[in-house]
Amino acid sequence: MIFSFLFAFVVGGLICVVGQLMLDVGKLTPGHTLSTLVVVGAILDGFGLYEPLIDLAGAGATVPITSFGNSLTHGALAEAEKHGLVGVLTGMFEVTSSGISAAILFGFIGALLFRSKGTID
């Protein structure tokens, strides 16, 4: 159990370091960086490489945004296995719906509860 935390910390941290390099050295905007990482996650799953990473690092692989690309691909592939090409389209949000629905719901609640403040501290 201790090791699972350690692996989650190290793997998750390293994915963030890759993102930081894209921001600082690659001079990408946050939008470009996150979009690229999502695409990388999708491609890694295409080669079957992301699931082993999740087995190793747990939340270290499921919490970074790369896992979003992975789970989209994963859902699509799982349905494609059952229904062929149609499944690619229908299966996409099978696995990953919770992140988006949570963001939408909490975005709405956040807008109800809060307003932005231009303070420094």
Partner: peptide, 8 residues
């Protein structure tokens, strides 16, 4: 960006 967006 929006005021509360966490960009560096």
């Amino acid at each position: 960006y929006p005021i509360d967006y966490g960009a560096q």
